[in-house]
Design a protein around this nucleic acid. Sequence first.
DNA 1: ATCCCGAGGG
DNA 2: CCCTCTGGAT
Length: 212
Amino acid sequence: MQEQQIQRFFTTLQAANPLPASELEYSSVFELLAAVLLSAQATDVGVNKATRRLFPVANTPARILALGLDGLEAHIRTIGLYRSKARHLIQTCEILLARHGGQVPRSREALEALPGVGRKTANVVLNVAFGEPTCAVDTHIFRVSNRTGLAPGKTPLAVELTLVKRIPERFRVDAHHWLILHGRYVCQARKPRCAACSVADCCDFTPKTTAG
DNA sequence: ATCCCGAGGG
DNA sequence: CCCTCTGGAT
């Protein structure tokens, strides 16, 4: 995908969805962090189902810790990888209270030091909660970036660095949600819906009919 | 490279 | 049945 096509790609997605947002449900920065931590290799629908049980009972680090490991697991048992996520979330809450006054830190280093928080989750929090133009690369963004030719790369980090270079700054904050939603509903893993795709004409993957 | 790990879809 | 879902730790 060439530079002019990248402009068109994001301009088109922007026109269809001027104010894109996460489909994860949260009402505080801590809830966002917890929801994103729980969302690893899980659907947002499944995460929302669990957090609708969890957050009314425990939506602060102290309240999560008050649940204990078994109590937390009971609330999130329907999410894949729930045992490791419960353990990590508890360890993260302990660190938030011990080192950060119970608040979610704003630096990449501090975020990635939290158990269960890697580069992708840190990028999401930095972007969605704090407005930084980071490019979190999840399964959707990795696939869409490679398939369309927007940012080819063998690893998520390689894709991320290319995305930062290639996405114009004015699009970079919202690009996260545009790419995820595009991957979820149009550029799907198994059967990409190219016939219904608004950006097929600037995609390396979609077969294009020769002009004329 | 491997493990974790439930739910939904094809 | 198999694949996929806003990955991270070992």
